[in-house]
Design a protein around this nucleic acid. Structure first.
Lengths: 253, 253
DNA sequence: AGAAGGACCAGTGGTCCGTA
DNA sequence: AGAAGGACCAGTGGTCCGTA
């Protein structure tokens, strides 16, 4: 059970990556180091009633996990900054600089699953409705537990990428290597994840819901609207005419 | 497929019970007559911008299914009135007067199931999200299909009564007979339906969700909050002390 | 430009309470 | 009084778009 490590972390003092590494240490016994792109002491000030304007960049510094308690006291106000953007990394590769890798991305989905299980256990104990999916409630719980780097738009955005990783890791890995080699950005890689998924659905009677539900780690995620639409379009194309579906393919993707 | 009969009915001309009987005729081949409490020509006028005030009662008259087209034209404005209240009836018993019986109540749940199936089929065909439960969407569809006598608060109110009917028809029937004989009203009967359901849940490890989901006609209904709470309370009572659970019982119900 | 996520919005589950 | 159901409300799924 890793909830202790999460609950214990300081909302103010630790960067998300540091938390991530701490959790990893708990999970895997201290062996695995994640992307070392620690956000460091970048700070932002929100002036009363106004939008955030001042940004004091102090350059990166690896916070070893010590709990400096610089909260709202002492004149300076600190604010959690955005996560570093993702880059296309090979399996096992650590992202350098202010970037996060795709192993880290997929790990966020595993974390959400753990949060869901905790929410489910609490609900069962209380005799309340028990969610079967990663709902708003789960995202709220994750935030409360200190995992502020998890948010709904991000997780929904990359669900289908995680799906491919779950359903066909070899294809997923090959795609990552290919797109890294070509120097493609994350958006391009993300787009490319749709096609192999549609092919998988095709082998399951085009039922993308059934594909998701058949996989225990995937079943807790809502099927993304666009993936559902692509499967539907492709099914119609395949039914209407198999001879020109190749042309249609190049139009969809 | 009964959707034709539903789609064909006039929103203005037919009472709900007439529709009900028409649908029954389609379903069972004309043999079964439902409660004959046809609401008839009771009319109400809504004056522009004001609340409904005028009520012209024309007494009941059995509309044989002919389509009189008295809509908003001709000076009078007509409005659909409430369903007749339910009374406790024995299995197979037809409610007399301006009342509806419990067979009719349970039949409404079957109708909702049919509407759900239609909504599901449409969703599948369009490649859209497919509901597994009777949702707002299904109630909306039912209304649009002319089944204006189906509404969410009513269906949710009696779900657990239908659940008992599904899960243990003998017990359900015995309860109906007992409460009818004692001259109890619908509210009292409804309350009494909770207890045998909690007993059923007790035999399934207190998991009322599992009880619902194991029954195909019940699985499409959300477990009512109060039933869930009663199961939870009783489980705690049973765990805490089996010797005083009898006392606790009489407090809960 | 490419990307992260606060915050909004239409429609949901749930049921109260003004109505008949 | 007992009961049916319009209509409201808090919190949902979904994702846009102002932000960095």
């Amino acid at each position: 059970d890793t909830s202790i490590a999460i609950d214990a972390l300081s909302q103010e003092g630790l960067s998300e990556e540091a938390v991530q590494q701490e959790r990893e240490a708990v999970l895997s016994g201290g062996g695995g180091t994640w992307e070392m792109a620690v956000r460091g002491g970048k700070k932002m000030c929100r002036r009363k009633g106004q939008k955030k304007v001042v940004e004091v960049d102090e350059e990166d510094e690896l916070e070893g996990g010590d709990d400096d308690e610089n909260g709202d006291t002492g004149g300076g106000c600190y604010e959690r900054q955005r996560e570093h953007p993702f880059i296309v990394t090979e399996p096992g590769e650590v992202a350098r600089g202010k970037k996060n890798g795709l192993d880290y991305l997929f790990h966020l989905y595993e974390q959400c699953r753990e949060f869901l299980i905790q929410v489910q256990n609490i609900a069962k104990e209380r005799g309340e409705k028990c969610p079967t999916k990663v709902t708003n409630q789960v995202f709220r719980y994750a935030k409360k537990a200190g995992a502020s780097y998890i948010n709904k738009p991000k997780m929904r955005h990359y669900v289908h990428c995680y799906a491919l990783h779950c359903l066909d890791e070899d294809t997923s890995n090959a795609l990552r290597r290919a797109f890294k080699e070509r120097g493609e950005n994350v958006g391009a890689w993300r787009q490319a994840c749709y096609k192999p998924l549609v092919a998988i659905a095709a082998h399951q009677g085009w039922d993308i819901d059934a594909v998701f539900n058949a996989h225990p780690r995937l079943a807790i995620w809502y099927v993304p609207t666009k993936l559902r639409q692509l499967c539907h379009l492709e099914r119609n194309n395949a039914t209407a005419s198999s001879s020109i579906s190749g042309i249609a393919n190049s139009c969809i993707y």
